[in-house]
Amino acid sequence: MAEVTKLIHKYLRHEKKFPHVWCPGCGNGIVLGALIRAIDRTGFTKDEIVLVSGIGCSGRLSVYVDFNTLHTTHGRALTFATGVKLANPKLQVIVVMGDGDATAIGGNHFIHAARRNLNLTAIIINNNIYGMTGGQYSPTTPYGAISATSLYGNLEHAFSIAELAVTAGAAWVGRSTVYHATHLDQLMEQAIVKRGFAVVEVISHCHTLYGRKNKLGGPVEMMEWQKQVAVKIEKARTMTPEELEGKITIGVLTDRDLPIYTQELRRVREAARVALGEKSSQ
């Protein structure tokens, strides 16, 4: 049996939930593949993993895997995950969201989760559009781009999700694309084993809506574009802002050891117990 088939048999609910709902050529399948390969390498058992997802095309990802899964509402995946992690910190909680989920309706949760620094892994598939509802502009739709609600060009400016996560205080932030599948595998693995709030922004493509409306071609052309604009972060640091215009930096944007919320909570409890104990013994 081929290695990929073994993984499919091990991790995917291939006899129950397939065929999936994603369009042929969608990047979500690459993200799903990267995720199960990364989990396989980390050595976590299937039952140690909780995969939490929101609403949108990415929300279906949790349906297809044989982990503990929690399919939540639009934008709230991180809050459900926060509860899971606090109640049972032994669980390895991975949250999959889309750009709408994580940076529009759930944008507040995203920045606060980054700031709080629980040991969670957040994977954000950024396809620049609300795909499932028919291609309305999202917070990552580029300025001037065409969408179902911006027929003559988007007037708003896009978030840079990974940079937002860094600024909001995430312990680890990485970015890759669905074209760079091997690189994506590595980032996913690092994000899962990282202690603290780890974010992987995955640049993907919605050729069905975003690509078609903006005449960017099919999945092949859009992935070629990902290849062309991607610059490794190490190289990007040697480039001028002008040279970086229109480029997407990929790699690990930040990796820092920050106090983790659950550890901090234990520390405060210990300190309080000691203080109260000292008080009562006086």
Partner: peptide
Amino acid sequence: YPITPQTHIVEHLSS
């Protein structure tokens, strides 16, 4: 905000 099955109304209004 987009939500199925309301989207066509607002999409068309946006155009």
